[in-house]
Nucleic acid binder design. Structure first.
Lengths: 256, 256
DNA sequence: GCAATAATATGACGAAGCGTCAAAAAATGT
DNA sequence: ACATTTTTTGACGCTTCGTCATATTATTGC
């Protein structure tokens, strides 16, 4: 009988040799997929090409993933963990609640600038006609990972209310605040997507614009302390260097 | 010689019989494509199916569109005109500058709720791997249509500055304001996309959430008059019934 | 150590879709 | 009425997906 290879066993028991090998191969497949995406783009990502690259047959890949879309979703799951890490760091940042929330925006923006591929993959798996091919298990996996992120953000909002940085009245719409913030981050991300010519749309895009809009969004909710009329950039720089110096370096290096 | 059928001639001269027939058939193709999308979804949208439905051969379709993606983009171009109409109506709304800007948000949101297909198509043509197949002409067509929308929004922002509803200091970042606003609209739209289970993410989504966030965004920019602490919904209802009663009816009818 | 059995890997194959192009059909010009 | 240009057609080649009978490898029982 042909059974589905699986490494999603989350039990604490040590994996058997077999399971380890399976996990290793799964990682190999995902690595290879990412490479191809990186070097040749999504339209060149075919199961045959992956099979050739990893020196296993196509059937073996299909023992790991029910289809191509599911595989891309797995890639997203793997990579979104980096984003969780960034959000966690932001939530633990030593500063006001507002600075911590701001840090999340910077982190999100930085992360996707460094890894535009991830943004593209996320974009792809959000398309309904793609989505319907992804297994329910994988869908709920990515969903719960995203949930972890929104929970982290939500906690900061609640802390802000508790310590009086945000008015008590918003206690029952903390979700909305997170949703709005995320919408703006996500929307900006997609609108800024590499190949869409925003300049011609009359926009002056970039991280700084997003930063400003995020600040104004928080101002609107009366999140104290308010952003200064001028010079909120110094806060931006402070947070960037405090929390994301590695990421900023990486970005600078790449742009050279 | 095989030449490309074209009806994009924008000259004012009356079209010849031939051109009219061509335009008619192009519309037929797009209508049919939209039908198939509506009834069977994007994965069932194939050139062969369209050909069969319109009772022309596939080759004839390829005389109108260089490929499938270009055709979907054409569909977007055709439909985005409705959005321009909505934005125009919003810009001409008799009310404060802030109300007009708000009206744009409501209109955008309503429009995509009524036509979720359009939102999906827009989402699709924003994917790089799709985009690279679309002809440059079509890309610049949709770009300039989108530009018309942002221009309309931008004009309202400028009027707001002129009449003192927005502080003079933002004069040179009107683009950013429009960009932020649009990001939030667009981001919310995509995050709310039909099949993504937001409830489980802890969100309480919907038009009202978006409305609130838009209001807070404007508050953040100090766009006068500020939204009231409670009861900004009455303004929402007023604008909806003043400007979009047709659209609201349509939506109610459909949900019945 | 070996046969029997179970698990896994393979790649040829069918199905489906895209886009092409030589040939057929229709329209136009003379 | 015939020649020439334009348009339409659908069979065809190509690519990709995902399957599955068969081959290979691993495991178990004795």
């Amino acid at each position: 009988m042909q059974t589905q290879a699986t490494v999603t066993d989350t039990s604490r028991y040590p994996l058997s040799r077999k399971q380890r090998e399976l996990a290793k191969r799964e990682a190999l497949i995902l690595d290879t997929a990412q490479n191809i995406l990186h070097e040749q783009g999504y339209s060149s990502l075919t199961m045959d090409r992956i099979a050739e690259a990893i020196e296993y047959s196509k059937g073996t890949i299909y023992n790991h993933f029910p289809n191509k879309e599911d595989m891309v979703c797995s890639l997203c799951c793997r990579n979104i963990k980096n984003l969780i890490d960034i959000f966690t760091r932001a939530a633990e940042y030593e500063g006001t609640s507002r600075e911590r929330f701001s840090a999340m925006g910077i982190g999100y923006s930085l992360y996707h600038q460094i890894n535009p591929l991830d943004a593209q993959n996320i974009q792809i798996i959000k398309i309904n006609s793609i989505r319907e091919k992804i297994s329910l298990e994988k869908l709920s996996e990515i969903e719960s990972l995203e949930q972890r992120i929104t929970e982290i953000a939500n906690r900061v909002v609640q802390e802000a209310i508790q310590c009086g940085d945000l008015p008590k009245e918003v206690s029952d719409i903390t979700d909305s605040i997170v949703f709005g913030y995320w919408s703006m981050l996500y929307g900006s991300l997609l609108l800024e997507q590499s190949d869409i010519p925003l300049e011609n749309l009359g926009f002056n895009p970039g991280v700084k614009t997003l930063w400003l809009n995020c600040q104004k969004f928080m101002d609107g909710y009366n999140w104290l302390p308010h952003s200064p009329d001028i010079g909120s950039e110094s806060l931006f720089n402070k947070i960037s260097s405090d929390l994301y110096s590695n990421e900023v370096d990486m970005l600078n290096k790449r742009n050279k």
